[in-house]
Amino acid sequence: MTAYKRPVSVLVVVHTPDLQVLLLERASHAGYWQSVTGSQEAGEALADTALRELAEETGISAPPGDLHDWQMSNRYEIFAEWRHRYAPGVVHNTEHVFSLQVAAGQAVVIAPDEHLDYCWLPWHEAAEKCFSWSNRDALLMLPERVSLAQR
């Protein structure tokens, strides 16, 4: 039996206090840059998905209390080329947005089977570089979200 991906995922925006944002280049699509993303596994809480994907894709471990749940989700159509990963007939995914602030100079160890490279960019430049509209929109909201979290 084929194990299909669940059409529920997380987007984790990793940033420094001065809003430098970590972007990862997809191994399967050179030139496609994104924040940390990944699908929820059965029985897994969304925050646990975010922390697992963060560790798998970047080598960054964070305590659950450091992760900020934006209480925001996006529903989007799954690219046709990636639909084979999902059960037949599944064409939409719901993505839940989180962020994590890390110290400047945070070490990153990418998963070579998932990513080719990484970079740190100012939030507005990172937003321009993302291929995903939902990732771009989250990055454009980052200054306001960080300001609200600090109040």
Rank of each mutant, 00 (worst) to 15 (best):
S99T: 08
S134H: 13
Y118Q: 06
E125S: 13
A127R: 06
W133M: 04
S134N: 14
E125W: 11
R136T: 11
D117F: 04
D137I: 12
A111V: 12
C119W: 04
L121P: 00
Y118V: 02
L121T: 09
W123M: 09
E125D: 15
S132L: 01
V102R: 07
A111Y: 10
P112K: 01
L121I: 07
C130T: 03
A103P: 06
P122N: 08
N135P: 05
D137V: 13
L121D: 00
D117A: 11
H124Q: 15
V109L: 12
D113Q: 12
L100P: 02
Q101K: 11
N135C: 12
D137A: 15
P112G: 01
E114T: 07
P122T: 03
L100A: 06
E125Y: 04
E128Q: 15
F131L: 00
F131M: 06
S99Y: 07
Y118D: 05
A103Q: 10
D113I: 04
N135D: 12
A127W: 07
D137G: 08
W120E: 01
S134Y: 13
L116V: 13
A103C: 09
Q101H: 05
Q106G: 09
P122G: 02
S99I: 00
D137Q: 15
Q106K: 07
C130Y: 01
I110D: 11
A107I: 00
C130S: 06
A126Y: 06
W120T: 09
S99Q: 00
A127F: 09
W123E: 02
F131V: 02
E128V: 12
S134T: 14
H115I: 07
V108Y: 03
C130V: 04
A127S: 06
F131H: 02
H115Y: 14
S99P: 09
V109E: 14
G105W: 10
H115C: 09
V108D: 02
S134E: 11
V102A: 03
Q101M: 14
E125G: 02
Y118N: 11
H115L: 01
H124R: 14
S99H: 01
I110V: 15
S99A: 06
Y118H: 15
H124S: 13
E128W: 10
R136L: 08
D117W: 03
S99K: 02
W133R: 05
